[in-house]
């Protein structure tokens, strides 16, 4: 299913060229979609798959979704494709799911970086997992969240997060930055 508005009959000239594009991530704060229950500080020794599993369980648990394995399977399927790890140390696994009303998100802060099996030269220091509704009209929001999270989680914030004492402190750092 595609989120796009298909406009085969319209010539390219009529594309909304002059409409000023909205600010990326406008109206959507990362801190508003995270809670202390969905911010994890996994202990050392976990690999990427284990962190992802813990995050999926936490995110679905907070949303009252019992079949979290289906969500994990979907995001693992997406992870088989093009990498979602950035060279800032942020890993951004995501999937579009049927039947959810809005964004579901969680974050894992890794005190000790873990390697990304798909890109051995990159280390994961923060993993941000989110699910968005699998609807055409929700896809721009999905993209804006990808852009917004990538923009927010720069090395300086990641350094602060990994040095923070726990979920509440981590959330506070993000809120402060977004204020």
């Amino acid at each position: 299913m595609s989120w796009f508005q298909k406009k085969p009959s319209e010539p390219a000239a009529e594309a909304p060229k002059t409409t000023p594009p909205p600010r990326a991530g406008k109206g959507l704060k990362v801190s508003s979609i995270l809670t202390v229950e969905t911010v994890l500080f996994p202990s050392e020794g976990h690999d990427k798959a284990a962190v992802l599993q813990s995050l999926a369980a936490a995110v679905c648990g907070k949303a009252g979704i019992a079949d979290w394995a289906a969500f994990l399977a979907k995001v693992q399927e997406r992870e088989q494709g093009i990498s979602t790890t950035l060279d800032t140390g942020l890993s951004l696994p995501h999937a579009r799911m049927d039947g959810i009303p809005g964004i579901l998100a969680g974050m894992a802060v890794l005190k000790k970086p873990i390697p990304d099996p798909k890109q051995p030269d990159l280390s994961i220091r923060v993993m941000f997992l989110f699910f968005s509704p699998n609807k055409q009209e929700a896809f721009p929001m999905h993209l804006q969240l990808l852009r917004g999270v990538s923009s927010l989680f720069q090395p300086a914030l990641i350094d602060q997060l990994t040095a923070s004492s726990g979920p509440a402190a981590a959330l506070e750092l993000i809120k402060k930055l977004e204020a």
Binding site: I82, T84, L143, V149
Partner: peptide, 23 residues
Amino acid sequence: TDTQLERLAMTWGSLQKDKQPVR
């Protein structure tokens, strides 16, 4: 196309230094 755009949105956000909107 979805995957292309997802990856581009991530790298765009990661590297963006200004508030310039993009299409």
